[in-house]
Design a protein around this nucleic acid. Structure first.
Lengths: 162, 162
DNA sequence: CTTGAAAGTTACTACGG
DNA sequence: CCGTAGTAACTTTCAAG
């Protein structure tokens, strides 16, 4: 089965535009990418069906909604035997305050990001994790003091060479 | 001047819904939050003007667009004298591959996230950073091997108690 | 790919409770 | 604050070039 997953310049421009303004109308989008509305909409639907566009969301300024803290946690497992990684991932999977979990190379094994209502909540989470997670779990917590740069997305033009 | 920044249950429901589906129509949104379309739209516009909603975007499955690597970098500055933090932030500010930069507490001072087209690009960036950044810069790189959990947003209901 | 047309939705505004 | 209602704009699908 032949795959038709190739993206041309226009597709990339659509993606970059929608990444910048996810609620742009199809008409405005079509003008920006130099197409008429119908083929533009066709491309957007195709990108959605292919899974290239995974979804849409609004960006919320959390500070204006509630007091929260963001905590990055580097995790190292003393045991790298079979099951240790799975046990850890299972232990964190259903924590609603966990926003991201990445397995990484380097001095530690995982990097987590939590968003909690307060330090107490985070403390309870990390305590619970140490109690229920695999043996030899080592957590190192880093509370975010200031977000110097917050991503609105990646620079697609730099990541794809045509 | 009195501020009217308070958010009620309906506002939070609007935010949670738009966080989950940023392209939902106002009509569907109004049904979900139990309002008729016009007051619902009024609230959305108010949230946008207040800056609670900072914008909208689509989520792109980068793997389907181009081969990329994500690298988390923990940074420590040997000098915490005046100017050291500013010098570092200035050095990283304009790197397009830098997606996030957080000043954090704990064993290191900053946590960065880069998305690059390949390791070579990242290496060039970190080399350049070490060359142009402040003295005593210590970088520790962590290439993301697998994203175990990727955030679609925060759990607003858990962060705000009404 | 484009244009253009037609039908269905939606957004937006103004007005009234 | 809410809802109703009307208009303009947009989306979506179609056919034809």
């Amino acid at each position: 089965m032949t795959q038709h997953n190739e993206l041309d310049r226009i597709d990339l421009k659509i993606l970059a535009t929608l990444q910048d303004d996810g609620r742009i109308t199809n008409q405005a989008l079509s003008e920006r990418v130099g197409l008429s509305p119908s083929p533009c909409l066709q491309r957007v639907r195709r990108l959605e069906k292919l899974g290239v566009i995974k979804g849409y969301s609004c960006h919320i300024d959390l500070e204006r909604v509630a007091q929260t803290i963001t905590v990055f946690v580097s995790v190292s497992l003393s045991s790298h035997e079979k099951g240790a990684f799975g046990a850890f991932e299972a232990a964190v999977a259903d924590i609603p305050e966990l926003v991201e979990c990445h397995k990484v190379s380097g001095q530690f094994d995982y990097l987590l990001r939590f968003v909690c209502s307060d330090i107490g909540t985070y403390t309870a989470i990390s305590d619970h994790l140490l109690a229920t997670g695999p043996e030899g779990l080592n957590l190192s917590s880093h509370v975010v003091l200031q977000a110097t740069k917050e991503s609105k997305g990646v620079a697609l033009e730099r990541l794809v060479r045509q």
